[in-house]
Each structure stands twice: as C-alpha cells, then as structure tokens.
Design a protein around this nucleic acid. Sequence first.
DNA 1: ATAGGGTTAG
Length: 706
Amino acid sequence: MHISFTALSTTITTGSRWSSPTAGFSMPHCVTLVSFSAQLLTQIFMCSWPCSVIKAAGEACIAFHAHVLKLGHANDPYIRNVMLDTYGKHGPSEVAWKLFDEMTDKKLPDWNSVISGCWKWGNEAEACRLFNLMPERNVITWTAMITGYAKLKDLVSARRYFDEMPAKSVESWNAMLSGYAQNDFAEEALNLFGDMVRAGVQPNETTLVTVLSACSSCGDPSLSDSILKTMKRNGFKMNCFVKTALLNLYAKQGNLEGARRIFDELGVYKSSVTWNAMISAYARVGQLDSARELFSIMPDRDVISWNSMIAGYAQNGHSTVAIELFKEMISTKQFQPDEVTMVSVISACGHLGALELGNWVTNLISNYEIELTVSGYNSLIFMYSKCGNIKEAQRIFYEMEIRDVVSYNTLISGFAAHGQGKDAIELMTTMKEEGILPDRITYIGVLTACSHEGLLEEGRKVFESIRNPSVDHFACMVDLLGRVGQLDEAMILIDNMAMEPHSGVYGSLLNASRIHKRIEFGQLAANKLFELEPQNSGNYVLLSNIYASTGRWKDAANIRQMMRRERLRKGTGWSCVEYKDELHKFVVGDRMHARSHDIYRLLTELLSKMRTQGYSADKSCALRDVEEEEKEEMVGIHSEKLAICFSLLVGEVGSVIRVVKNLRVCWDCHTWIKMVSVMVGREIIVRDNNRFHCFNNGLCSCKDHW
DNA sequence: ATAGGGTTAG
C-alpha cells in the first residue's frame, strides 16, 4: 500500500472520510484532542477502549497522522513515537516502517515500538534484525521478544530471551508465564511461577490471572490452594480479572458453589467474561437450567455466551435444543456465529443423524464467511460419518491440508461404526507414516472396527502393539474375543488384567454371552455389573433376555421381578427420524406425534401381517414375542418401531438414517425390523447409537447381533 | 490478563 500524506491531508480537511468509519469518533472531536496535547493523544490509543473503537481508530490513524503533521507536531518525539506505535499495532504497518526508516534520530522507544509492530504482524526475521541492530536495549525490548516468540508458540526461543535478559520486570515474568499458559504448558507456567516467587518478585494482578488460569487447566488443587493461601496472607487485592480467573478455577475443580459465591460477590462489577465463565461452568456439568437462567438475564450477551449455551446442550445429549438455540441466535441477526458455534451445531446434527440439517448448517459456513480450521473440518467428518455418509467424510478428510490426531480418530471411529475394520487399520498405518502418533482413542476406534468386522487376528495384533493398554482397550478386546465366540479366552484376559475391570469390560462380556447364549458368563458379568452400576436397567434386561433365549423363563421372570423391586426402568431411549428438514423424535409409547394415529394403525397392520407370515419361524423368537407384547402393554411401543413406522408412512425408508438408542437392550426390535424389511421389500438403515445396521430382505449387515 | 468448540466402547 502506498500512502501519500499530502493527499490524505487533503481528504481530511475536506472531511469526506470522517463521519462514517469512526463510530463515536467524529472529526471535530479528534482535531480537538490532537491539538490539546501529546498526553491526550496517547490516551486515545492506549486506554482500554472497546474493540470497535480501537478498530475505528486504526482506520482513522492515517487521518490522525495527517493532522499531527498539519498541526506542526511532526517533530515532537513523544507524538512521533505514539504514531509509530499506533501504526505498528493497528496498521497500516507499512506506514510505521516508512516513518521509522525516515527517522534520523531513532530513540529507544521508537525501536521498541517498531519491534512490537513486527511481532504483531508475525515478522520474526525483521524483529530479530532490528533487535540485533539497535544501539541499546532495555527491559521492554527483551520482553517484546518474549511476547513475540510466545505468540509464535516458539516457547524455547521465548525462554532463551527470558533467560538471557540482564534484568527482569514483573511484566517480563508475566510475558513468559502467559506464553506457557496460553500454549497449554500449564505445568511449565506453574514451575516458572515458583521460580518467580523464589526470586522474590512481587506478583501483580496480571500474574495471578495467568497463574490461576494455568491452575484451572492443570487440575492439581493442592497447588492452587497454596497460591490462594499466600494471596490471603499477603492481603492481595483482587480485581475483576483475578476474581473471574478464580471463579473459573473453582468451576473447573467442580466447586460450583464457590464459583457462584464469587459471581454473586462481584455484584454489578461483573464483566461479560465473568458471566460467560459462570454460564459455561453450569453448562459444562449439565446444569443447563441454571446456565440458561443466567444466559437470559445477562446484560451483554456475546458470541461466547451463545456458544457456551449451545455447546452445553450439545454435549449433554440435548442436540435438538442446541440446534433450536442456534436458530434463535441467527434469527436475531445481532450475532455472527463463528467456527466454535458451527462445530457444536454440526456435531449436534451428527449425533441426531440429521443430514439435511447438517447440509443446511454446512452451507451457512460459507454464507457467514467462516474460515474453518482443523477442528471445523473434523466436526464435518464426524457429522457425515454419523449420518451414514462415510464417503463424504472420507472426501473431506483427504481434502484437508492439515490433519491432526482427532481427524484420524474421527474417521477411524466412522469406519468402526460402518464395520470397516480393514480401512480403520489401514488409516492407522497411514497416520503413523505421516508422523502422527495414535493415542488411546485411536486404538479404541481400531479395535472396535475390528470387532464389528470380526477381525480377530488383526485386532489381536493391534491390541498387543499398544504400549500401555487402558481399561477401555481391554473392554474392546473382550468385546472382540466375545463377539467371535472366544468367551473363555475373554475371561482369561479379564482375570489377567493389571487393573480393576470397569463396567465396560463386563458389559462387553455380557453382550457376548447374549450373542452366544453362554449363560454362565452372562451371570458372572451381570452380577459384577449389578454391583458396579446398580442403576443401569439395561444390564437386568440383558440378563433376562439371555435366560429367555435359552428357554429359562422362570429365571427371566425373576430378573424382571428384581427390576420391579428395585424400581428400575428402562432409560429414556429415543429414536429420531429426519424428514423434510424436520426432526421427528419418538420416545417409548409416544402418542404426541401429529401422525400418531396412522403410526399405530400401521404398527397393528404390520404385526398381524407378521403373524400370518410366520413371525414364529424361530421357536424362541415366538416365545420372546409373547413376553414382549406383555411388556409393551405395560410401557408402550418401542420408540424404534414408532420411528420406523413413521418413515414407512412418509415413504422415506432407505434414504434416511434413523437413530435409535439401545437397540442392544431392545428385546425384539432387531427381529422386528428384519421382518419389516421383508414386508416392505426395501432396505432399512438404522443407526443404533454408534453403529450402523443395514436391514434388507430379512437380513442384517451385522451378523453377530442376534 | 479472565470466558466458548471436535473424537471412543456397550
């Protein structure tokens, strides 16, 4: 960009560029300020004005400069440095470099301003060149170098300057601390803080904010406790920033009452950051009503408030609410959704299997001109594979320029859901070749994929290659062994585990016992599970089903009796169908749907057809069905059946994925859907939580299931 | 200087 000062001067004096781009920053006002004093001019740029005004000031910068020249301040060293600093920070930076080059008597602050400017625009080479060239340096110069390298995430270089600098101010320590803290090196930050205390440097508020933030991400309460004690002992005065950081620390440690106390104590002196910290604290732990209440009375909501709320719903199983809230957000037209918003919403679409909705959201990304980073693309991979379109997920994956471990994990898990074990293994090999190390989630994905495809030997090899297998990996391996029928070996594996097996391990064993009708293992697993998670009704249902499937009706009934005695009910499962841009959600015995009447009629029709077509080909199946009818009379028709009947009514079966929960626990749904697929002569695709089942002509793509 | 997002099993 070429700047002609004379031309600008003219523009300014005619006043044509002034009124609009500078909100609350009108021309006469500026002129007055400039002519007052250099001190005031500094204030305009340096004081903590809202971002919008600073931006406006950036645009107005050139004009200011023109005025400074006109008013004869051009050679005032103080003003000149302010202009240099301002151009460097807000641009156009070229002006700063030009000004600096033309200066014949460069003073130390001028060098410092220009070096800071270089870092601001990411010009490491120039910053270093000037640093080495300058005749003298002060503590500000050195600190600028630390801040600059910290911004580039080059903490080794930052630390080198920090260690080499002849004298350190609190600000230097703070720069190094926040460099560590903001780049996820909480531990290093806390260690450095220890050094700082030992060096006898008095921390200020900024220090505390940084350190408390590091404490909240490192999760060691004893450290923050001692810091807080020292603060109390020294009578440290806490401003709003420190209190908000402390609020966040309490929240991250699970002390919501403590967090709320700080929130309330702050009274009217809360910033929007304080509000957001409290809202997201509630939202994270699933106290969505408390979060929503604060959200609704918060004075100045911003994107982050919306994002915290939306993410709260999305992460606590309320995908539909998350999407509704998002729609509300954009309908106000006051808020621009950003990548973070989109990631939550896209992920919610994935959980719901709502492809149409997902496509609509994806289009919004370009409408709002949102630049996606790796996380954004990752969420798209997740959404497409959860919606059954693994091809599109793969396409996005291969089009990405940079992929991280989550990209790989997400696609591998997608392969697992689609039963593509070999693809999962192959992708893990590729990621290693690309220099990305598999983590525990990668292995969970690959093992699950092997299990779903029945690849015992391949899975075994993968399992043996894991350096420090966690309980989850054992659970996957038990699942794999169990599914292919090697229950004895699965049992040996459990017995030889170095750690205590958790519910996932016994859950896998129980499921395998069901598939292969191995009552003895089923009983063992179920009894362990009754201890480990007595509230999970699914375990009772499963054991009862195992008894029933081998004709032990009395035992089956006893378990049901036990459930009743313990007042356990099947959890709130739901099924969901997307049709014409709308989500149709069903729960057990649902009669709320607009087409309920038609749905139940079709259901009855199908059932009588099934009877005449010999639903009872398999003896145990027929008997099961009797018991199932009994149960349905009590609790109502399964949500899965309602959802599928709705799809049949609107004629969308085969093109849309249906999401159902707990197909595993569901008594006869699997058989039922198989029969339906024969009767309608079409393919029915169902996603049971995390796995796709393709029903066609009485067969299911996952052979191991029943 | 403080606040917000994505991945796993049954």
